[in-house]
Amino acid sequence: MLMCRGLAEIASDYIDGELSGRQNLTVKMHLMMCKDCRTFIGNLRASSSLLSAHSAGRPDEEFLRQIDERVTEALKNRATKDSESD
């Protein structure tokens, strides 16, 4: 029988639709009877969608500007090389 702990262990697989049909059914049956696990799954799902909305690890503008500089220089070098080989 699937206990709450067992369900918590496979909760992300359930949310992402990665369980087999049989496992999925077992989780659904448990959820029908267990309010705590329904809250847990709901909250884990909410955490996951918070993350989709929150694109963290955004590089700072200074870092992006450095890339721009290197790209601009490399583009210039490339254009010079192209015109020399023409």
């Binding site: 206990m3 709450c4 702990r5 847990f40 909410a46 955490s47 969608s49 918070l50 989709s52």
Partner: peptide, 15 residues
């Protein structure tokens, strides 16, 4: 394997 300390609240923070 049952909850001792279940999640108390439903998250109201949404995306």
């Amino acid at each position: 394997g049952r909850w001792d300390l279940p999640p108390k609240l439903q998250f109201h923070e949404s995306a």
